[in-house]
Write a protein that binds this DNA or RNA. Sequence first.
DNA 1: CTACAGATGTACT
DNA 2: GTACATCTGTAGA
Length: 209
Amino acid sequence: MSDLLDRSALADDVLPAARRLLGCELAADTPQGEVRVRLVEVEAYRGADDPGSHCYRGKTARNEVMWGPAGHLYVYFVYGMHFCANIVCLQDGVAGAVLVRAGEVLSDLGAAHARRPTARGRDAELAKGPARLCALLGLDKEANGVDVLDPSSPVRLYAGTPVPDADVRTGPRVGVAAGQERPWRLWVAGSKTVTPYKAGRARADGPDW
DNA sequence: CTACAGATGTACT
DNA sequence: GTACATCTGTAGA
């Protein structure tokens, strides 16, 4: 058990925020009890200069919370089927968020498998991928805008155990215009729960953290 | 591993 | 209408 993450860890810029979110623990109340995961893969988005961001074209009803204060959830529905969750970063009025892409289950595995039968008993598939992680934690449009740094919220973000620099890997994003190859995807080396597809090539030499 | 079908919100033309 | 801006599950090799 650990304390909630400090909100200031998300305030400065999306890349250091993403770096800090690795190793944090996201917990949600579900009918099967509290489900908790350790974040092992994240991806940073910043509205102003990222064509891949939902906010690149400005504020809409859908992406509104991404423009708000840090520490809230931005949950959106995609492809008519799936939910994905971001943790909002930066100052109120500035669009930025970190997409949570994968996690390792820390809570009861039986309950987790009951929530995600399509994992077919494979622990590594419980929360591998942003929509799977949302399904596991029960995050849907009801969770949009929730403050995960409020201890009374149904979804909470704990500081967890920081990941050493030596274990952090970064990769360029794919499908983004040339010149945007900044290491905005970060993951924990060696985790079996990281989405391997669209493999941005791993690099141990990140920016100067 | 690769391929593609899935069911349908959101923002665009 | 159409593409999709952050996909998943299943089938088949």
